[in-house]
Nucleic acid binder design. Structure first.
Lengths: 219, 219
DNA sequence: TTGCACGCCGATCTTGACCTCCACGGAGCC
DNA sequence: GGCTCCGTGGAGGTCAAGATCGGCGTGCAA
């Protein structure tokens, strides 16, 4: 029944400065939230994981929801920035697709916890959480939409629809790739998905390129 | 005023045969679960929505989780069947893609509640729920995977990766389409997404070269 | 050395939601 | 027509989990 009964948390209850303690609490909360989801995650578990007691947790965060939101805010901007960065990294659309897909897979590979925290959140019904998650999705879609509009001349609603499909493809494939234990080599998986997406979007008729009417005609 | 407040529940507390009562309870539960999610949905709300009291609910279902699982089971097979049916409806891959995309959009259009119930579940951490949801995803992916393998000769892991991407594209696009209030006309949206997917997958190097016009290298 | 301040912990409270017990009312039967 | 039975309804128990209060030990200044 000693204090150090658990596992790899701090061996002894040592006093930490506030910023370090806060970062440690955020890390512990991220592990618990990702492992069990928001609802199944108990504040007791987070505190135990961090090697402190619950009051310390409540001295750093007003409540469970605020802790979760702080964690979300830590990652939301990073995700948008990565996708947008891939869009801005090159003027060649093929490279852009490759870069965006690589961004998804990199994020999955190295920060899968953040990805799952945002995109598999079980608190999307909460307005605060919903707003943040939708901001990320809209941000990713918007980054792609601009390119689609400027290159294909589709209407904004059409371009956004396609962009959402592309984002869904990349996200779902990356998720599937990770969930199946990285069975396919990462570079190969990236190339496959990038090819899929590139072939899909590149074939769309350019402005003034072909017969007008319905650009969505399959043929 | 209590019984007839919401919508089309039984106007008066009439005695119903068990099967009809059960169906009514399932319908009420679906509305509540979709509207508020699993956790925020209260059994009191479901009972009130159905116009009965809680004991009746517990005479039909042992508990909240079982009620949710029964609801899930009602729809899981339907979703898989629709996608698989679209795959089997035609030997032409282009028609298959069209049919599958139409299946997604039809499901979104007409049974969006079922879609949201399955794919936006906030109880995916529960093993029972996770198993069912993953079975649907795997079923949809598997249906497409067989076609991809037989037509492109890719390895199973590669084909499954692409299939997951395609399913993600269709699902995300359909979800986006619905979330934005069906802004784009349905037929046009279907055609756009089907074209995106078909262009993406049809360009992959064929083994026999049946449907795709020009096999192209993966860039 | 001694008083002070501060961060930390065990134990506790409260709320809210899932899940059952006692009264009522209509339907079938003699 | 009266008795019995079954299903309904509201009120209550229980428990888990979020949120909080008095005590303790350490480091610093005078």
């Amino acid at each position: 029944m000693t204090a150090a009964s658990g596992g790899q948390q701090t061996a002894r209850p040592t006093r930490l400065p506030r910023s370090a303690r806060r970062k440690q609490l955020l890390a512990a909360a991220q592990q618990i939230f990702v492992a069990h989801g928001y609802h199944a995650a108990a504040m007791d578990d987070i505190a135990e994981r961090a090697g402190v007691s619950k009051p310390v947790l409540y001295q750093h965060f007003p409540g469970k929801l605020e802790l979760y939101l702080a964690l979300l805010d830590t990652h939301c901007d990073a995700i948008i920035a990565k996708v947008r960065g891939a869009m801005l990294a090159s003027p060649d659309n093929k490279d852009r697709v490759k870069g965006a897909v690589r961004a998804y897979f990199d994020f999955m590979d190295h920060e899968s916890e953040a990805f799952r925290l945002v995109f598999e959140s079980d608190l999307r019904n909460d307005p605060q959480v919903r707003q943040r998650v939708e901001r990320v999705e809209q941000g990713c879609i918007a980054a792609v939409t601009d390119t689609i509009i400027s290159d294909t001349g589709l209407r904004p609603d059409q371009a956004e629809l396609l962009a959402s499909g592309l984002a869904g493809a990349a996200g779902q494939a990356a998720q599937f790739w990770l969930a199946n234990g990285r069975r396919t080599p990462k570079a190969e998986a990236e190339a496959l998905v990038a090819a899929l997406i590139w072939r899909g979007i590149a074939s769309f008729p350019l402005q003034g390129g072909s017969t007008a009417g319905t650009p969505a005609e399959i043929g």
